[in-house]
Amino acid sequence: MIINSPAIVIHSLRYSEADLIVLLFTKTSGLRSYLLRGVLKSKRGKIRASLFQPLTLLEIEAFHKDKGSLEKIKEAKIQTIYKTLHTDFVKSSLVFFISEVLKNAIKEEEPNTELFEYLETALVWLDEHETIGNFHIVFLTKLTQYLGFYPDVSVDQAIYFNMLDGVFQNKSSNAYCINGQHVVEFKSFLGTTFEASMEIKLSKAMRGKILAMLLVYFELHLHGFKKPKSLSVLNEIFN
């Protein structure tokens, strides 16, 4: 089956001397892996290795067998040309962190249009803005909404955050109920926009605590999720 779809590059892996295996999150078919033969040596082909940098927004034409094997890309081109995402050091660090999170978090080979459009909007926003200190916090918080475990805010005045059940409550009921100033600050990110979240003032230590809490929250709700290896670099930059 031939498909034409927008796609987001999640990961790429060198395979043999000249081939690449790339993992794309497509708008029409969900998460798919593609084998690109000879792309690392080809300089004149329609498909170039440079197209598959992490989180690049593409338009692809591909052949899908839908048998769980590696698919084939017939054509690929840039959908949105980033101005800063792959050249600014801080943003590049965010790109590697986000791509690792998405590689661990998205598993379905089925379309999720709302998730795709959220990621597309978030990446373009990051590319176009300079004040981005809280971006990773609000990005992960909003991402939980599309993955199915956004915190229940109906009792948001409660002091404990029960990470196991994703609710706020007044008493601790299990080992994953936490409280403290980082829980209070985390509530500020619930229901806010990217623009408004950049106005939230956090100390370096507080930002680190909220991020650590969010990653534990992801681990609890996503089978096989692991903390990104790029986390240490991100903490050095933002903390």
Rank of each mutant, 00 (worst) to 15 (best):
E185T: 02
I73Q: 05
E236M: 15
D156C: 10
E108P: 01
E109T: 09
K187W: 11
K142A: 00
Y82T: 06
G166A: 07
T121Y: 02
A18F: 14
Q181R: 13
R14M: 09
C177W: 08
G45I: 01
V22W: 06
K46C: 04
T121D: 10
S172K: 14
E71L: 08
T131G: 00
I2C: 00
T84P: 03
N179L: 12
K77Q: 12
I237N: 15
V9A: 10
K83M: 13
A76T: 10
Q145R: 14
G148N: 10
Q157F: 10
A62P: 04
N4P: 00
K27T: 00
Y160P: 09
I98H: 04
Y15Q: 11
L23R: 15
L36M: 09
E61P: 05
K209L: 15
Y150A: 05
S16P: 03
Q79E: 13
F161I: 03
F96K: 01
K74V: 15
E236A: 15
L143R: 02
L211I: 15
S69W: 07
I60M: 10
A18E: 08
V167S: 05
Y15R: 08
T87Y: 11
I60R: 06
K142V: 00
L20Q: 05
L94D: 01
Y217L: 06
E117Q: 08
D165K: 12
E109Y: 00
L190P: 07
H129T: 08
L211H: 07
